[in-house]
Amino acid sequence: MEELDEALRKVADAEPNRMQVAGFIKLLRDRCEIGTAPECDPAALRAEVFRLATQQRRALGIREPFHRSAVIDACAARHHCTPEQLESMLFADLPGAQLLSSMQPITPIDLLHRYNLALAQGILLRSTQVTIHLVPTTATRIRQLIRAMRFRRLMFQITGSAQSGYEIVLDGPMSLFESTQRYGIQLALFLPALVAEEGWSLKARLRWGKERKEAVLSISDQDGFVSPYRKDSTELEEISTLVESFSRLDCPWSVRRSSRIFHLQNQSLFVPDLVFEKDNKLRVYLEAFGTWNRDAVFDRVQILQQELGERFILAVSKKLRVSPEIACDDFPLRILVYGSAISAHSVWRLLEDIVKDV
């Protein structure tokens, strides 16, 4: 890879707009698969060579010289290769020595589309708030966007209806006290999901430059953005794992992904992840809450205190340090705090607890 990197540096240096060329190179590098030779384990090979060298040094007399070539020759014979091949494999895992094994092809126009989208994604890393407006649309479409935002664990509020259109307000990374870079990357990765839709506009408030001056980014579906987004790849791992593990339980409850949208009194929306059903009459909805801000959990509990006529479970990551006691026993809502995964047995116990007085 050293030869390739050097050639790319020469290409960038020869162009007047060096930063733009560097952006294209970054996108192309991201499409490359780079690694060591498949038959080679450089770390194990180095350990073997160093071990043999140590043994030979200890066996030498005080005036006897150490011959590095003898160690290389002996190891090469063990691995049925030439000393030159062994030398090339010793440090094959270092960045400069790695091999370009393959690259996903891309046309020039597609590369230009990716570049334009990446520019907008980079700007979102400096945002404090992002507001999205959607023209009147179907419930299926809005569920897809909500699913994509949840997949990226974004903090958002959504209001509106299928008849009047929707407004989505997302917290930007520059509004957080910690994990701003991680959250910003997730926000940037959400943008292709939005761009894949029609009838949208986005306005982002920014803190720009070293002085963090206020600025605004305004883009829409009329700006020619093209998305590589696939709609079949946006579900939280916690949800897919829970569906799989719960379906294996021998219990009277069934589980499926929820398609229902709850319209709340303040015109905001609540879209659960899953719905559990028993005897075709008992129903409990679950939302997985893996966000960056624990205050959002308290806001959700307050919202669900409205009379929605249903029962709910909020599954909350223990990283948010939320107590299950924030949900009152006399209210049809339970908090389930989970670690790396949502326990199917814990959900079953909560389901029975919620409906025990029905």
Score class of each variant (00 low, 15 high):
F312V: 09
L100M: 05
A14I: 04
S179H: 14
S164Y: 15
E235Y: 03
A74E: 15
S101Q: 11
R57F: 04
T138G: 09
L4W: 10
I142K: 02
L125S: 14
A327E: 05
P105H: 06
A315H: 06
A43Y: 09
L249H: 13
A7L: 10
L333G: 07
A76Y: 03
S227R: 01
L242D: 11
E307M: 06
R256S: 12
D223N: 03
T137P: 00
L8G: 04
F246D: 12
L60E: 10
R321V: 08
E2Y: 06
L117T: 13
I168R: 06
V49C: 07
F270L: 02
V271G: 01
Q129H: 05
P136I: 10
P272N: 05
E39D: 12
E39C: 02
T107G: 11
V49N: 12
Q56I: 04
I142Q: 04
V322I: 12
L145K: 06
E277M: 04
H79T: 03
V21K: 02
I185G: 10
S227W: 02
G184E: 14
A196C: 08
R257K: 09
S88K: 06
V169A: 14
R143G: 00
E48T: 03
V275G: 02
K210G: 07
C251T: 15
I132S: 11
S323R: 09
L117Q: 14
K356Q: 10
T140L: 06
N293S: 08
T241K: 04
D223I: 00
